[in-house]
Simulated assay, not measured.
Amino acid sequence: MKMKKISILGIVGLSLFLGACTQAKKDEAKQNNQLTSLTSIQQSEGGTSATKETNSISQETTRLTLAHAVQIYESNYPNTSVTSIELDSSFGIYYYEIKGVDDQKEYELKIHAKTGDIKKKRVENLENDEKNGVERKEKGMVTTNLLSLEEITSRAQEAAGDGTAVEWNLEKELDTVYWEVKVKSGKSETDVTLNAETGTVLEVEKED
């Protein structure tokens, strides 16, 4: 009888011990799952924040596309030819400055690159030797054949090797429409000239 009691007590004790071990393993597994879930959430939130930051940087500079900026210019100055486009920043705010001509006058429009608001309008007479279609024929360009600014920027940065594009200037010379893009990396700058219609790199000039 005494041995039976000891056996029963032993079995009960073993059961309690095994139960405690099982519960400990469950608690450990639960804790590990919680840690894994927390890590996943943090990584997910970190990735989301990085994406939002990248998008916000893009939106803070040029939400207005080049094509839209040209449309705004043409709606203000119809029946003119665009002769140059410049995109750069003033106190951290980017603006498009678009110039154009007709047979008698020169026009300029400054547009906020994020909001599309017009900040400046200017009209003045051409010089006598530029009138009657002379300047228009020499400098006027067709903007419908231009590559997107994103494509030009990508190619300019690739040609520079390192850095970020900060200024863009579009002009026409000898029937070639080209972009000159300034790429900055630290204190060094690289000017990359590209054909605006094909994206071909025409010149790379580094400035230390």
Rank of each mutant, 00 (worst) to 15 (best):
L202K: 00
D162L: 12
L146H: 04
S81Y: 03
E86H: 09
T39S: 15
N55Q: 05
G161T: 03
F91P: 00
S7R: 06
R155L: 14
I98S: 02
E173V: 04
G133Q: 05
E203F: 04
N128P: 04
N125Q: 12
Y96G: 04
K2T: 07
G140D: 10
S58L: 11
S44N: 06
S58R: 13
T115I: 12
K99T: 15
G47V: 09
M1Y: 01
G19W: 02
E97W: 06
N169F: 05
V123F: 05
Q71C: 06
V134C: 03
C21H: 13
N145A: 13
G46F: 04
E189G: 01
G161K: 08
S56Y: 03
I41Y: 05
A196W: 01
T61Q: 14
N76G: 03
Q59V: 09
E86Q: 15
T22E: 12
I57E: 08
N195W: 10
G163E: 04
I111R: 00
Q34E: 10
A196S: 12
I41V: 15
L202Q: 01
E86P: 10
G100W: 00
N33I: 08
K25G: 05
R63W: 01
E127G: 13
Q31Y: 14
K137C: 02
K114Q: 13
K114A: 11
V181L: 04
I8P: 00
T198H: 12
T39W: 07
A160Y: 01
A159T: 06
T65W: 02
T200D: 14
V181S: 06
G161L: 06
D117M: 06
V201A: 00
E53Q: 11
K184R: 14
Q34K: 12
K182Q: 14
T153V: 14
A156S: 07
L109S: 08
G140P: 13
F17S: 08
L64G: 01
S188L: 03
T190A: 06
H68F: 07
N169I: 06
G116S: 03
S81W: 01
E86S: 15
E180I: 07
Y77C: 05
D191Q: 10
K187F: 11
N79L: 05
T22W: 10
N169A: 06
E205M: 02
T176Y: 07
Y96T: 08
K4W: 00
T164D: 08
E171H: 08
Y73V: 11
Q157L: 03
K184S: 14
D129Y: 13
T36C: 09
L66P: 12
H112F: 04
D102A: 14
A165F: 00
Q43F: 05
